Computed example of a mutant assay.
Amino acid sequence: MKNNLSNSTLYLLSISAGLVVANLYYNQPLLHDIALSLNVSDSHVSNVALSTQIGYALGLLLIIPLGDKISNLKIIKIDFLILILSLLGAAFSQSLFFLIVSSFLIGFTSTLPQLFVPMAAHLSSDASRGRAIGIVMSGLLIGILGSRVLSGLVGEYFGWRTVFYGAAALMFVLFFLLNAKLPIIKPKYGDSYAKLMKSLWFYFRTEPTLRLATLRGALAFGSLSEFWTTLVFLMEDSFNYGSAVAGSFGLFGIAGALAATVVGKLNNRVNKGTLILFGGIVIVISWVIFLFSAHSIIGLIIGVILIDLGVQSVHITNQNIVFSKNPDARNRVNTIYMVGFFIGGAAGTSLGSFAWNYFGWTGVSVLGLVFSGIIVFVQLLTNKRTI
């Protein structure tokens, strides 16, 4: 297959993925300021972050499959219009209810990066697909990790509403760049939306490699989510640091995110089963380091870099596998994979909080070892069925 993806378009997709996905996380460091501004309690304002995540989950399920049925630019036009209006709605909100509704719509329409990854895979040649996926994922991950830091700084000095005004302005500029630079992809799927959604179950049922990739992805993201959920508790308990310091650990995670590009390139040269096994073992090592780092900042920093590297090794290789096998249904298989991925994240968050409450950091670390150990065990058991 000929490579139809120029470097300029590829890096535009990567930057766009980071800027769009950042909309999901801007509100998290601002919640206390929002509570004071709207005169509501911290417990009530937490529904702002919750509604954003619920919106994202529904958008992932309902919007992303459309990439196999509707032109990419048509989806972008409609989605960006709603996203920009939702960000402005959040900025202008004078009540918690209106902010929650706006946040839900922000989450619902910020799923576009999950269209960009299959788009990059579709436009790439077989030989360059791994590199393309890795570069787009690097941008997405840097957006996730950097958004909280940026939001906290802007919010502290200019107010929380400025964050949403700025985000709306960025999306406005990005909308015109994407419309001007992206090639039009016209999918071949011609059946109804109902049949499109029904086909999700068909691919999950008939593709064992997709099921295995989804399981590995869920375990990897569960492990990562468990760490980030409980890190702030550890910072307060062992070091007397607050959420700002815990959030700054995201800067160290960017090192692991940048490694996604390298992992993507290796996908074209190294056996994919070997890469997944490597990723799983690196996650195990990170949790061993975490286990003995309850009072060591240096240990935690090393562990953060390793866990992000390991998770990205598993995640990018998983995506390369499922995209390679289903060229006409890349958005649908990505929907299945990412829904499983985020279910794993939710499980990691819940179980991590439970482990911390009852068993402290030792319990959290043991749980992380269980998650990552299962990845290694499953991979050793099914290595020949990985691809």
Rank of each mutant, 00 (worst) to 15 (best):
M1T: 12
T9Y: 05
L12A: 12
S16A: 14
N27S: 15
I54C: 06
L61M: 13
L62G: 10
I63S: 02
I63C: 01
P65F: 04
L66N: 07
S71W: 00
K74C: 05
I75W: 02
F80H: 10
L81I: 14
L88E: 00
V101A: 13
S103E: 05
I106F: 08
L123M: 05
S124E: 09
S124D: 05
A127K: 14
G130P: 01
L140R: 03
R148N: 02
V149M: 10
G159Q: 01
A168L: 11
A168D: 08
A169E: 07
L170D: 09
P183C: 02
K188W: 04
S192A: 13
A194Q: 15
S199I: 13
S199D: 15
F204I: 13
F204T: 12
R205A: 15
T206P: 06
A213R: 10
A213L: 08
G217Y: 10
F227E: 12
F249K: 01
G253Y: 09
A257S: 10
K265I: 07
L266Q: 12
G273N: 09
L275I: 09
L275M: 13
V288T: 04
V288M: 14
F290K: 09
L291R: 10
L291D: 04
F292K: 07
S293W: 03
I298S: 13
G299I: 00
G299H: 03
L300R: 00
I301T: 13
V304G: 05
V311N: 06
S313C: 14
V314W: 11
H315V: 00
T317F: 00
Q319G: 04
S324L: 07
P327W: 06
R330L: 12
N331C: 06
Y337M: 12
A347P: 03
S350I: 15
G352E: 05
F354H: 08
Y358R: 11
G360P: 09
G360F: 08
T362N: 12
V364H: 01
F377P: 04
Q379T: 15
